[in-house]
């Protein structure tokens, strides 16, 4: 029986977290909207999928700065730089290949030095052990609501793993937990 409030959310600041699954982008945007301040989003420039600022839920596109890199090495370097600097309180890194423990730890240290929250969007099953939490985000069909998602906390360094059904509440500008419908 899932609880009515998210345990490891909002994300623990000054740490790097991970999100995977089809709705990972939403997870990043919603979290960025709640964090406040500028957001730096690092992704590889060659990818055919493009972010559409008109589709952002919660986050004002004016707060987003996108860094388009050539490969994963650049992504990690730019991400570490941004995390360590702390000028933007939230940094999103889109990764395409698994990263090792050393790399993950480096990002973690950079986030701690800059007081910045980092979020790596990873392909499924490619997480790094250094991550503070890992979330699997799936959209859920609902007859009334088109923002409903299922967030499963699949790794948590300082707590238990759980899963919640959530939706974005545009009036309150927050993530709301909804109780699952009993079948």
């Amino acid at each position: 029986m899932p609880s009515s409030s998210l345990t490891a959310y909002p994300l623990r600041p000054a740490r790097v977290h991970e999100a995977c699954g089809p709705s990972a982008a939403s997870f990043a945007l919603w979290t960025a909207a709640l964090t406040g301040g500028d957001v730096i989003w690092v992704r590889e420039g060659w990818r055919s999928e493009q972010l559409n600022p008109l589709g952002f839920q919660g986050l004002d596109p004016a707060r987003l700065i996108l860094a388009q890199t050539g490969d994963q090495n650049d992504t990690l370097a730019v991400g570490e730089e941004a995390l360590r600097d702390g000028a933007a309180p939230f940094v999103v890194l889109e990764l395409t290949a698994p990263i090792g423990l050393t790399t993950g730890r480096r990002l973690q240290l950079a986030a701690r030095a800059g007081g910045t929250t980092g979020l790596c969007l990873i392909p499924e099953g490619m997480g790094s052990n250094a991550a503070e939490t890992r979330w699997h985000c799936n959209p859920v069909f609902d007859a009334q609501d088109s923002t409903r998602q299922r967030w499963s906390l699949i790794k948590n360094k300082s707590g238990t793993c759980e899963a919640w059904n959530v939706r974005w509440d545009p009036e309150a500008h927050r993530v709301a937990v909804v109780s699952p419908v009993r079948e």
Partner: peptide
């Protein structure tokens, strides 16, 4: 930034 109709996040 205003869109009269919902738009996807990914294009």
């Amino acid at each position: 930034w205003a869109s009269p109709r919902p738009r996807p996040v990914w294009l």
